[in-house]
Simulated assay, not measured.
Amino acid sequence: MSGEVAEPWIFDTGPLSHFAKAGWLGLLKLIATDHPVLIPDVVLDELKRGAVSHPHLSMVVAATEDWIRVHPIADRSALVAFANYTALLVGTDGVKNLGECGVLALAETLPATAIVDDRAARNAASRSGVQLRGTAGLILDAVRDHGLPRDTASAVADDLLTSQYRLPFERGRFVQWSVENGLLEDE
């Protein structure tokens, strides 16, 4: 880049959790090299609560001491946006989708790009004009912008799928899906 700082990426718990669970958190750091990586305080809370029963989340929490910055939802505009997303997305338990609400509120008000895969959150973001990026797009970035070999990208996608993460293709079909959707050139 030419000295200018790229727009921040604000991550939801899901992508961070599954990159860590699949053993690819270091690759995610590489993919995000040009972007400040932020999480809202509500995502940090989710990660800390989850780390009790899912030790891989401790790696993500530890990354907040290194390359992931925690950004509180504190100013008035972010709080209003958070309340609006909460009304749309939070389940009856008062917790489900809270992280997504924080991500979308910050992405809307900073501005930044929300890194979410949850369909309901993506739909809400689209209606609000929030910039979105999904996990499959991050893997494509690694191929196109960072020279990640396609077979390695396919292994990353397969490992994420093995970790029970939902992506828009089946195991072994990342490259084929990318080519069919015009996201990668056919070799």
Rank of each mutant, 00 (worst) to 15 (best):
L27H: 12
E108F: 04
L167N: 02
M59A: 14
A107Y: 01
N97P: 10
H56N: 12
L104M: 05
D41V: 05
L79N: 12
S77K: 14
E100R: 00
Q176K: 15
R150C: 11
A83Q: 14
D159M: 08
L25E: 04
A114L: 08
G172H: 08
N181S: 12
G137R: 06
V5H: 08
K29T: 07
E185D: 15
Y165A: 10
I68S: 00
A121Y: 03
G23W: 05
I39S: 01
S53K: 15
V130K: 05
I115Y: 11
R171W: 10
S2F: 12
L57Q: 08
R166T: 11
D158T: 02
G137M: 05
I68G: 00
E170P: 06
R133S: 12
A125M: 02
L138N: 03
E108C: 01
S154K: 09
V175N: 06
A157L: 07
T135V: 05
I115A: 14
A157N: 08
P111E: 10
G50D: 10
L148K: 05
G91M: 03
K21C: 12
G14S: 15
G23L: 06
L110A: 09
G182C: 09
V179F: 06
D145V: 09
K48A: 12
G102R: 02
D159S: 15
V179T: 10
A87L: 12
S77Y: 06
A157W: 03
A74F: 10
G172Y: 09
G102K: 02
M59G: 08
T152M: 13
T92L: 13
I73T: 14
D66Y: 10
A20H: 00
T33H: 13
G91Y: 03
R49D: 12
A83I: 04
P55W: 09
L161F: 07
G137T: 05
P149R: 11
P40N: 04
W177C: 06
L167K: 06
S154Q: 15
A78L: 01
D141L: 11
P72S: 07
M1H: 13
L183S: 07
D159L: 01
M1E: 13
F19R: 01
E46T: 00
L160K: 04
V80H: 10
D117P: 03
E4V: 15
N84H: 14
S77R: 13
W177R: 04
V130Q: 07
V130E: 08
P111C: 08
D12F: 01
A142T: 06
L183Q: 13
L98Y: 03
D159R: 10
P168S: 01
A63F: 02
G3A: 12
V37L: 10
H56G: 07
S163K: 02
H54F: 13
Q176V: 15
E46L: 04
G147V: 07
S163I: 04
I73N: 00
L140N: 07
S53G: 11
E187Y: 11
P168Q: 05
G94A: 08
R69M: 14
L148Q: 04
H146E: 09
P72K: 05
A78Y: 05
M59S: 14
P8Q: 08
T152V: 15
L148H: 09
A136D: 07
T13K: 03
A51V: 01
V95K: 15
D12P: 05
A22P: 00
A107N: 03
V130W: 11
V130A: 07
A51I: 02
G26V: 12
D151T: 14
A153Q: 03
R127N: 13
E180L: 15
E4N: 13
